[in-house]
Write a protein that binds this DNA or RNA. Structure first.
Length: 869
RNA sequence: GCCGGGAUGGCGGAAUUGGUAGACGCACGGGACUCAAAAUCCCGCGAUGGUGACAUCAUGGGGGUUCGAUUCCCCCUCCCGGCACCA
């Protein structure tokens, strides 16, 4: 055995050994419990970043742990390979996106392999592979047949930078999720997937996901936004010229008797009708359309409106109610029209005040009166009044009674509505999955026949930054209609890349299946037992994938309802930001790797200097690693300097996986130091006749000296703790801390005494096994030293020896009035009176009590005694 | 505005079901080894007072429940995340 730890060499050897045996290639074994462990696949952007390393290390630790526990583990990897960065790189460098993407995949694959992840590379897939995306197209056609996919023209979110449409989920604070550009409204035809058909199930099934973080489930529930209410029809006052009845949706039918006007969105048919004869109204509508480009601005912008001169009739009283066009009613929710109840709705209240519309209170608090005149809307539930025969009812009763009355008049019914909108999947971009349709002047939209799939995306186009290159490539779009044989045009829009990622985890189960989208292996492996990824996909990818799985289930392609049984959302990787203000007032950022942080004699931070010039730099706080702040650390450099195990150990140790992780060079050094100590400990043990002790005449545990018995107890307690931390808590940081603690104790064990060597052998073997999911390479090498001729990966996860966990004497804490005042050692089986007696007799306790009388003694068995004086 | 999560030494974090606050690591200080430095090893390390044994204070702030509260309850401050004219 080498005296020193040489990570590069041992890591290369370990990886070679795993590769030769193909040990991580998974097959379906019916009689073994399966464990499908999945980390979100990367976009092949060029090289791995620390977020990837963290993500895949978490997955690898869990995979390797489960493997040792006897599970049939599958951990696959692939590439989310379609997307805009490829096109942008192509525009800049003049290289086709395909080449750029495949080159990146090759490099990043080698990086992942150098990190030693236990991945089944036989199942690797890339979403830009025609053999993958043909099944996107195939399923899209099935959806088309079922009416789940359909075409419509509507106002959409337009990203002016990426020059494409975005789905609602992809608009964050009014900006594109990728570019951050302010989203515009445009009216464009496109294809939609009817995710709203599944709204109710997507919401209800969140309850089938106890293994998901509450936070993510809440976010999805809010996004789906189910609300119960009543659809109400307001008949037209034809005398005023009102052309049609107005349908509204309300959750507060109990306030119906307080309606004083009706408001419609600027895009509403009634508004457009009225505008035809009223130029000023037309101008107002136009200004609404232009002003309201940014979603976030909508909420804060001033409420504006204009009367149409049209009237509707109150469905119960027949009263004439004016119709207003306003900018605060959304066309995209409900019917694009609302009944306005100023007394009981904040928005209506503001608007009514501005435009001097009547305010009619009809709800009062259950125990009390409404103070009039109202200073603000009373929006809570309460009791009706001033509502004719619907007075003096609780809100819930009034809603029911009014709904029944409206039902009898055929002017309303109870209705459930969702905030969720259908998923627009058309993208006016090149590097994506072609939508398999043909437009024929004669036959309309014609789907491609299944046996003609895939519609292959040409891989040699170089976009120039102006529009979709597919639309400028006749060899792609020129075709003949499959129905009538005449000249036709192929659809040049491609699918949202979130389509690709909505089912890749199913395809891993059968990525070599040429004849079908899935086969029975999908039902063996799925659902994914543990999914790991960033919280940023809480809605987007995770909601789409759930929807897609349910569609596939209804098409009888898979048999599960939910794709991901357990979800772990990892925290982001942060690093300090350093900068200087240059003379011209510009800010120049410096990479933390080029900066030395200084400390004073008390260990507090005193400043930071740039190594290159020795001059100070300012700290800009801690932030996510990003190019713009120049605070990223390249994982490759860490791997080359310290080895993959150090990188993995540091990331798992610095914080629990769900929390943010602060990068620290010193912390990396510390992790490296620990591995060096571990290596040395095994080396020294072998020098002292080490592993022979385990095989020759063993000393019975009962004959161990007391200190070794205690140490052996700690060893087995550590096994229990690490197992629990990995299995249940997923707190790898505390698991590592417990092993470090044990190592610290172990380093005191000296000498060649057989029992000492025997214990050392037992401890080191177990430490190597416990650490192996986290730092597999060094453990692979150390195991060969501790047990020559055997392989670590053939070993099961260690089991604690129950006998070792039982201590004859235990330590009990003694408190006086809840404050720690002493410790006593006492026999494990000592009864309550004995414990009390021992506590009272203790010298320290006697002194602290100073003769005060005992009022009461609280005993927590095995833990503490509290003496109340 | 609504919903959720959080605040613990110089720093990252630990304390799992109300039971020893600060595990483990980093930084820092002291020592050993060395011509010297690095590396390594040993010791110390919340604050205040005390030579010391020890005492007091301390988990964002204030109050409460309890023999005992970082943990439970009420109020407040600040930070982070999500949603936001959703009728």
């Amino acid at each position: 055995m080498q005296e020193k730890y040489h990570p590069q060499e041992i890591e290369r050897q370990a990886r070679q050994s795993w590769q030769e045996t193909g040990i991580f290639n998974a097959t379906e074994i019916p009689d073994k419990p399966k464990y499908y462990c999945l980390s979100m696949f990367p976009y092949p952007s060029g090289k791995l970043h620390m977020g990837h390393v963290r993500n895949y290390t978490i997955g690898d630790v869990l995979s390797r742990y489960r493997r040792m526990q006897g599970y049939n583990v599958m951990q696959p990897m692939g590439w989310d390979a379609f997307g805009l960065p490829a096109e942008n790189a192509a525009i800049q460098k003049g290289v086709p996106p395909a080449k750029w993407t495949y080159d990146n995949i090759a490099y990043m694959r080698s990086q992942l392999q150098s990190l030693g992840f236990a991945i089944d590379w036989q199942r690797e897939l890339a979403t830009c592979d025609p053999q993958y995306y043909r099944w996107n197209q195939w399923l899209f056609l099935r959806m088309l047949e079922k009416g789940i996919a359909y075409q419509k023209t509507q106002v959409v979110n337009w990203d002016p930078v990426d020059q494409t449409v975005l789905a609602n989920e992809q608009v964050i604070d009014g900006c594109g999720w990728r570019t951050g550009a302010v989203v515009e409204k445009r009216e464009i035809p496109g294809y939609y997937l009817a995710i709203t058909r599944y709204a109710d199930e997507l919401l209800a099934d969140l309850e089938k996901l106890p293994g998901w973080p509450e936070r993510v489930k809440t976010m999805q529930a809010n996004w789906i936004g189910k609300s119960f209410g009543v659809d109400i029809t307001f008949p037209p006052d034809t005398a005023s010229g009102m052309p049609q009845a107005l349908k509204v949706f309300t959750t507060r039918a109990d306030t119906l008797m307080g309606v004083t006007y009706v408001a419609v969105a600027a895009e509403h048919a009634v508004a457009l009708h009225a505008a035809r004869s009223q130029p000023d109204l037309a101008a107002f509508i136009e200004s609404c359309r232009q002003g309201a480009t940014m979603e976030a601005e909508l909420a804060v912008q001033e409420k504006k409106g204009m009367a149409t001169g049209l009237y509707v009739l109150h469905p119960l009283t027949g009263e004439r109610l004016p119709v207003w066009v306003t900018n605060y009613v959304l066309m995209s929710y409900g019917e694009g029209a609302v009944m306005a109840v100023p007394a009981h709705d904040e928005r209506d209240f503001d608007f009514a005040r501005q435009h001097s519309l009547p305010i009619k209170p009809v709800i009062r608090p259950e125990n009390g009166e409404l103070s009039v005149p109202l200073i603000q809307a009373f929006t809570e539930y309460g009791v009706t009044f001033n509502s004719a025969r619907f007075s003096d009812l609780k809100s819930s009763e009034a809603i029911d009674a009014i709904a029944v009355e409206l039902g009898q008049k055929a002017l309303g019914e109870k209705r459930v509505r969702y905030r969720l909108r259908d998923w627009g999947v058309s993208r006016q971009r090149y590097w994506g999955c072609p939508i398999p349709l043909i437009h024929c002047d004669n036959c309309g939209v014609v789907p491609i026949a299944d046996d003609q799939l895939p519609v292959v995306l040409p891989e040699d186009l170089v976009p120039d930054g102006s529009g979709n290159p597919l639309a400028k490539t006749p060899s792609f779009y020129e075709c003949t209609c499959p129905c009538c044989g005449r000249q036709a045009r192929r659809e040049t829009d491609t699918m949202d890349t979130f389509v690709d990622s909505s089912w890749y985890f199913i395809r891993y189960a059968c990525s070599d299946q040429p004849a079908a989208m899935t086969d029975q292996r999908a039902n063996y492996w799925l659902p994914v037992n543990q999914y790991i990824g960033g919280i940023e996909h809480a809605i987007l990818h995770l909601l789409y994938s759930r929807f897609w799985s349910k569609v596939m289930r209804d098409l009888e392609l898979v048999s599960f309802d939910e794709p991901f049984a357990n979800l772990l959302t990892q925290g982001m990787v942060l690093n300090e930001i350093f900068f200087r203000k240059t003379g011209s007032g510009r800010i120049q950022y410096f990479n933390p790797a080029e900066v030395d942080v200084q400390h004073d004699a008390e260990g507090k931070r005193s400043g930071a200097i740039l190594r290159a010039d020795g001059q100070p730099v300012e700290s800009g706080g801690i932030g996510t690693m990003s190019k713009s702040k120049n605070n990223g650390i390249d994982p490759q450099e860490i791997i080359e300097q310290y080895g993959a195990d150090t990188a993995r150990l540091f990331m798992m140790f610095a914080s629990p996986p769900t929390q943010t992780l602060e990068w620290s060079d010193a912390g990396v050094e510390g992790a490296f130091r620990f591995l060096k100590r571990l290596w040395r400990q095994v080396y020294l043990h072998k020098q002292q006749g080490g592993e022979a002790a385990a095989t020759t005449t063993p000393v019975p545990y009962q004959e161990y000296p007391a200190d070794l018995r205690d140490l052996r107890c700690q060893l087995h307690q550590t096994i229990v703790k690490v197992t629990d931390d990995l299995e249940r808590r997923h707190t790898f940081n505390t698991a590592i801390a417990a092993i470090m603690e044990l190592m610290n104790e172990l380093s005191d064990v000296q000498g060649t005494h057989p029992a000492a060597r025997q214990l050392m052998q037992e401890a080191l073997e177990n430490i190597v096994l416990l650490l192996s999911p986290i730092v597999p390479h060094i453990c692979h090498a150390l195991w060969r030293e501790l047990r020559p001729g055997t392989e670590l990966l053939d070993q099961p996860w260690p089991q604690a020896d129950d006998q070792a966990l039982i201590q004859d004497e235990i330590e009990i804490v003694v408190q006086i009035n809840g404050k720690l005042r002493g410790q006593i050692r006492i026999a494990r089986e000592a009864d309550r009176p004995a414990v009390e007696r021992a506590a009272l007799e203790d010298e320290h306790i006697q002194k602290s009590m100073a003769g005060r009388p005992v009022k009461r003694i609280v005993v927590v068995p095995g833990k503490l005694v509290n003496i109340v004086v």
